[in-house]
Each structure stands twice: as C-alpha cells, then as structure tokens.
Design a binder for these strands. Structure first.
Length: 602
RNA sequence: GCCGACAUAGCUCAGUUGGCUAGAGCAGCUGAUUUGUAAUCAGCAGGCCCGGGGUUCAAAUCCUCGUGUCGGCACCA
C-alpha cells in the first residue's frame, strides 16, 4: 500500500503539498485510521460535489467538511433534490471514481480567487472567512474547488462510500441566513468497515425507542392530542412506576423531602423569577378572572415557595426538596423527537438550599448519587462543567466563586471533567452528566446547577449564628433529567430488553392448558406480594403460540406451568432469548425474582 | 421556525398513467381444538384513504391551506 498523505508536526498534509514544500514525515496509508479516514472523507465530499455539479450544472457550493460521522457538503441549486436522488448521485460518483482523476492542487492569491469565483456568491462567502492572502484550489477532472485540503492523490482511491442523508442547513449555521441543501455521506477504506458501519446504523434503528415504544406498548402520541404530548400506555406506566419508586427511596435515604408545587402559578412570579422575560415565548399562559397564569416550565418557584413557608436556621441547612415535577415547554415543532424532546415532561427535580460552605459537599453527594444510578443501568458517563455564558445575570465575583467551587469539588475527589466555556445557564455555572449507552452513543441527562440568582430575586434567607439574615445558595439538580427522555434512552440502551428490576412485566406465566389457569393465578398473586408484575397467557391459542407471543414482549422470564408443575409445586422457567429451560421450586422461583428486583438499590 | 420527504384498518404495509365494491398479513371477535416450550384450523368484523378547500364527467391518486410524523438545520433557559 502506498501513502496517501504525510503526517508532519501533528498536521496532515497531502502528497502534492508535501512534495511542493519538501515536507517529510510519517506516511499515512489508506486504512481506517482516523487520519486516513479524514482525508478519504474529505476527498469523497469533493467527489460528491463533482457528481452534483455534473448532474445539476447550476449548483454552487459552500463548505464540505468531514464530521464525526462522515462528511457533508452544503450547496445550492434551483433543482429540487430529494432522497431518491442520492442513488443517482452515488452512481455518478462511482463513474467519476472509475476514471481515476488525479487530484491536483494549485495556489492563487485571494484576489485572483475572488475574480475567478465572482459569479459564485457562496464561494465568496467562504472566502470572507479565510484570513490568508493565498488560497488553494483543488482540481479533479473538470471540477475545481476552493479548499485547504488535505486530499487523496486521486479520486480512484475512493471506493467504499454511501450517501446517507439529505437535509436543509442554514448557511453558516445561522438561522437568519438562507437555507442550503446538505447531503451527508460516509466513506471507509475497506468494504468491511463500511458494512460494519451500515450494520451499526441498522442496529440503532432497530433500537429506536419510538419503534420499540410502539411495539412494546410503552407510550404513544396522537395527532388530535397535540404534538409533543406523550401518552403513557399500561406497560410504560408500569416501567415508569418502578423507576419512580426506586428513586423515591433513594431520595429519602439522602434526606430529600418530597414536596409538590402547583402546575401553574401567577405570571407575577414568573416575572420575579425572570422566566417571563427570558423564556416567556416558550411558556404556556392562560388568563382567568383577569389574572394571567403561566404553566410551569420548571419547578424551582414552587420549591422556593415551600422554602418560604417557614423561617430557616443555619442549623437546618442543607434543605433538600424533590418532586417528580411535570413541566411544559413549548419546544419548536422541528425539535420534537419521540420521547427525547417533548412539550410536557416530568423531571426528577430537586433543589438544595445550603450555605456557601456546603456547596462542595452537596455537589459531591449529588455526583455520588448520579454514579450509583448510572452504573446500575450499565452506563458509562462523563461530566462537563459549563461556565458563564454571554447572556448572564448576577455579579462577576459570585460567578467566579461558584465556578471555582464546582472545579474544586471535582478536583478534590479526583473526578475527570471537561469544560464547556460559556455553556452555563444564565443564572449560574453547572455540571452536566453525559452518559454513554450500550452502542456507544452519547446522551445528556443529569445536570447540577448553582444558582445565586433566584435566591436573590426572591430574597430568600436563613438566620445565621448571630441571628443575621443570610442568603442561601440554591442548587438545582436532576439526575435522569426527565422520565420521558431517560426511558427513551433506557429503551435504546437495552434494545427493549429491560432488566428484571425495571421491566414492565417481570414474568409471563403460560399455563399449558385450561386446567392449569388456577395455579397460574396463584403464582401471579404470590408475585404481586413480592412486588413483581406478571401476565398470564391463557388465551385459546396453542402453547407454542403463547410462548412466542410472550417472547415477543421481551419479558425477562417465562414460567410454564402444567400438570407436572402443579403436582410438584414447581415452575418451569424459560429465560429471555436463550432457549434454556430449567425447573425451580415455587420458593426458589419467588426468591430468585425477589433477589433480582431487590439487588438494585441506588 | 427553516429545507426536504411522508400520512391508506389498532399495527406493518400493497394500491399502475386520475377510472369497477380500496386490498393483504398481524392484532381483534365467533366457533372448533385443550395443546409441554417461537405462529392449530375455519368463519366474521375493521376504512370520512390525516382534516378543510379546490381542479375534474370522475380524486386515496392532481393543486392549495392546515395538522401530524420522519431526516437534518436552528433551538434546548
């Protein structure tokens, strides 16, 4: 195999450039290494542009970078391009690739380039973003493009690629600008790698919570109900109830008090909190008796009212309130996505009111809570500290102190974290928890946010040692984020095969014949006593059919009972997916289920 | 909100260039069968073809405005 590029001082340069400038370094070969793929995909983007240009001669191109999952190119054409056209473009790309055009490069001054592309506003826009005085042009066959490279020596090396999506994208990523057409694609050095990637996409599709949620009857949406308002079906209701009850205990152990605020509050309160001004566009309002009310988009204000219900001493702090708080946020139509982005959802929300000195230990306690939950579900996770954004309230000193507290908490406990500069909420810095699911995808769930703003706006206070009035710090935190989103993620993580402790149904009981129904019912009652749900499959269908039906619900365990089992007081167990069968006594069976349910303890 | 695609039975999907009474599988109901570890057989019932407006002798099919869904972009306090 020969080199496709040179790595020099951690920079990848293409062969043309290396030769031209006499650069020497490590040779990059065309394999599936990140460096090689980056070059390959970049050139594939150009090949795609070449194909598009030949099929749609009026096409003008903006930028075509490589991204995490491949590459894309943004362009503009009068022609209407749809999904169906991707195949056509792919075909054209292959035919160009077969011609094995060399990818040539030459440099011209920016002024020359501006002259050259004077009829192409998109290219001129690209050039505006380039500070250099000289720009490089890459050329393959008739096709030329302004580009910094690096590129393959020849498009003949491009063989294993696929165009995956077509979509609109704002020029320069700014919604004030016009919208261009964007085509996404992926390329690999080998056929196997491409296939593996396509298989991974197919696997992700199989796990899609919207598909599984429908199949498993977890939840649904209905047009007449309204976009973004999920409807929880019985199976989903049971799953969710299990999660809620596990989490309830975990909160109580850590000293959180369950509270509940109203679903809507007078708008004056939202004006005090600042939500009216900052977030009002996304809130639901209603007017009655000439008073305006706002449906809560978060639970803080309710908890603040709980805090205000009595006077507090420094001796009482920290005070922790929690609530499965239902909130409404009018998300934009295009943002809605299954359970991941909805307009009504329930947060596992809590607010900790504490002294400045207590911030650090409280943060650590929350992080430990997060750790227990995430590892129980088999998620790896990482944390990110987000600092002061441009649009921020509160004075700079408080911001600095809060950010420092977060960082020092992490560092003292040797916890790894990344920093997202300027990614904080307008009222304080935060720690976000990003989890990694079973197939390596990243999700943002929990968040811990420091807030000095609301305590000030609502003039919260507690009595200090010398009976002086002190403003407490408020820590907002959610661990799952929302039940909706988290259950969506769990569904995809487990591919619908929920572990016993969270599964909507723990056991499917299949009586062999009519005469065994009574024993099945007896088992089912005993299961309820140990907090396990079961379903009896006693329909007038063949045994095989009922086992098949039960299997398809992805229930963790099937218990078959017939004459033998009744006589010996046993159950015949069939584990999910494996065809393994074994017999247990009733006691063994019940204690096994009980153990599996109880082994989880956050 | 923006660009593009799509919407047919509870679910998954057929339905030709506008043209007979809009079909199938699964699920449901009724009956027969009473089953030992992934689909027993037969019969029946299911549709304002997403909604409003239009074009046409004729619309599931074409146009238009909504609603919803999907892929992205933008957004996510």
């Amino acid at each position: 195999m020969s080199a496709i590029a040179i790595k020099h001082n951690d920079e990848i340069v293409d062969l043309v450039t290396a030769q031209e400038q006499g650069i020497e370094g490590e040779e990059i070969e065309l394999d599936n290494s990140p460096e090689a793929l980056d070059v390959l995909r970049h050139s594939t983007a150009h090949l795609m542009a070449q194909a598009i240009k030949s099929l749609y001669p009026d096409a003008q191109f903006f930028v075509g970078p490589t991204v995490k999952e491949g590459f894309y190119y943004d362009f503009k054409t009068e022609a209407e391009i749809g999904e169906a056209d991707l195949k056509k473009i792919e075909k054209q790309m292959l035919s160009f690739a077969k011609k094995k055009y060399k990818i040539e490069k030459y440099a011209i001054s920016k002024a020359e380039a501006q002259e050259k592309f004077k009829d192409d506003p998109l290219k001129l826009a690209v050039m505006k973003r380039i500070p250099d005085e000289t720009v490089s042009i890459y050329k393959q066959g008739e096709f030329e493009d302004l580009c910094r490279g690096p590129h393959l020596p020849s498009i003949g090396l491009i063989r294993y690629f696929k165009l995956t999506k077509i979509a609109g994208a704002y020029l320069g990523g700014d919604s004030k600008n016009e919208m261009l057409t964007r085509i996404y694609g992926i390329a690999f050095a080998t056929k196997d790698a491409l296939k593996a990637h396509m298989d991974m996409l197919a696997e992700a599709e199989k796990r899609d919570h919207r598909k599984l949620g429908n199949e498993m009857k977890l939840f649904t949406f209905r047009e007449e109900v309204g976009a973004g308002f999920p409807i929880w079906l019985p199976a989903g209701g049971r799953l969710r109830a299990r999660l809620e009850s596990l989490l309830f205990k975990a909160h109580r152990k850590r000293g959180y008090e369950p509270v509940r605020g109203p679903e809507m509050l007078r708008s004056d309160l939202w004006k005090t909190s600042g939500h009216y001004q900052n977030y009002g566009e996304n809130m639901y309002f209603t007017n009655i008796d000439e008073i305006e009310f706002g449906v809560k988009p978060m639970n803080c204000v309710g908890h603040i009212k709980v805090y205000e219900d009595e006077l507090h001493s420094y001796r009482d702090l920290p005070i922790k309130y929690f609530e499965y708080g239902v909130v409404h946020r009018h998300e934009m139509t295009g943002a809605l996505h299954g359970l991941f982005r909805v307009r009504e959802f329930t947060q596992d929300d809590a607010h900790i009111f504490c002294t400045v000195d207590q911030i650090e230990e409280q943060i650590i306690e929350v992080i430990d809570f997060v750790h227990k939950i995430m590892t129980t579900f088999g998620f790896e996770y990482k944390m990110m500290i987000s600092t002061k954004p441009e649009k921020a309230v509160g004075d700079a000193e408080v911001w600095e102190k809060s950010e420092a507290a977060l960082k020092s908490a992490m560092e003292k406990h040797n916890l790894d974290y990344d920093i997202d500069e300027g990614g904080g909420a307008f009222y304080g810095p935060k720690i976000d928890i990003k989890i990694l699911d079973a197939i390596g995808r990243e999700w943002q769930c929990g968040t811990v946010q420091l807030d000095n703003n609301l305590p000030a706006r609502f003039e919260l206070e507690y009595n200090g040692e010398g009976n002086e009035k002190i403003q407490p710090v408020m820590i907002h935190r959610a661990i799952l984020g929302s039940f909706e989103r988290f259950i969506g993620i769990l569904t995809e993580h487990y591919a619908g095969e929920f572990p016993m402790f969270i599964a909507p149904t723990q056991v499917a009981i299949v009586p062999v014949a009519e005469s065994h129904k009574e024993y099945a019912k007896e088992l089912s009652d005993k299961l309820i006593d140990i907090n396990a749900d079961s379903e009896i499959y006693a329909k007038n269908d063949s045994l095989n059919k009922r086992i098949r039906t039960a299997e398809k619900t992805r229930v963790p365990m099937i218990a078959v009972v017939g004459d033998e089992e009744i006589e010996n007081k046993t159950v015949s167990i069939r584990d999910r997916r494996t065809r393994e069968q074994y017999t247990l006594s009733q006691e063994e069976f019940l204690s096994l289920i009980q153990t599996k349910i109880n082994e989880v303890n956050f």
